[in-house]
Design a protein around this nucleic acid. Sequence first.
DNA 1: AAAACCGACAACCGCCCCGTC
DNA 2: AGACGGGGCGGTTGTCGGTTT
Length: 258
Amino acid sequence: MARTPSFDRSGLKKGAWTPEEDKKLVAYIKRYGHWNWRELPKFAGLSRCGKSCRLRWMNYLRPNIKRGNYSREEEDIIIKMHRALGNKWAAIAEKLPGRTDNEIKNHWHTSLKKRLKQNPTESESKPQTSDQCKANIKQESSKLSTVLEDSSSPLSPVPSLSDFSSSSTDSMFGTITNWMGDEYSTILSDKLEEPISGEFWTESCVEGNSYIQENFPETWAYPGILFPLSPFSLEESFGSYVSYEDNFMEFEKMDEIW
DNA sequence: AAAACCGACAACCGCCCCGTC
DNA sequence: AGACGGGGCGGTTGTCGGTTT
């Protein structure tokens, strides 16, 4: 399925990701976040370019990725959004929780396009100007938000942070392992064996830890952590961002959790 | 059983946008 | 204002598994 692994001139690996590489990437991001995609592979011990790491994380490894078959409802949304927006896969993906733009794009090219050919009445998309697209994005977004807010909808967003905070460790762990699969669940199981204190859930995340996303279980965010595992000093890496003392404390807190 | 074909999808590439200096 | 760098996006390709011939 994936491409055969190879190395480019600069020695960077290309092609299919191995489970080992995935583990390294996941372990690094869950510990330090993606503070800089370009630098990240060096510190994570990966011979990959930053872009490749980003892509792997965004399309495959990040939490709450929904895989598998598309429901009819999801397909209808894709068709509808595509009619309104054209090939704005990222915008379309925003309205399908758990689906990535890449996945939607693939599904469009492999299935939906054909389906529409057979049944043209479903589509009839006219080329749109970029202004029209922008207007449509707004319009479709507000319409679909209404649908998605309805908790009875099968397309409801993934559980919110408050859902995680009120749930048991077990159920949260279930959610996390769900997106990672068995392959990686062992990395986590060690860390999640002990219940997480109530205090932990109320701590806010540092703004600017850019990988922390909506619906991202807070345990993954390491409250306050913003620095890399780097051979350089913290100051060198982040200059005025943080003081060593502050983050050393965060480090300790983090290690308690993990 | 083997070859040819097709569908699915992970991954790469190049371009563009946006923030920073 | 313009150069630069990082991140994001969309188009495309490469490969594998399944199906058909």
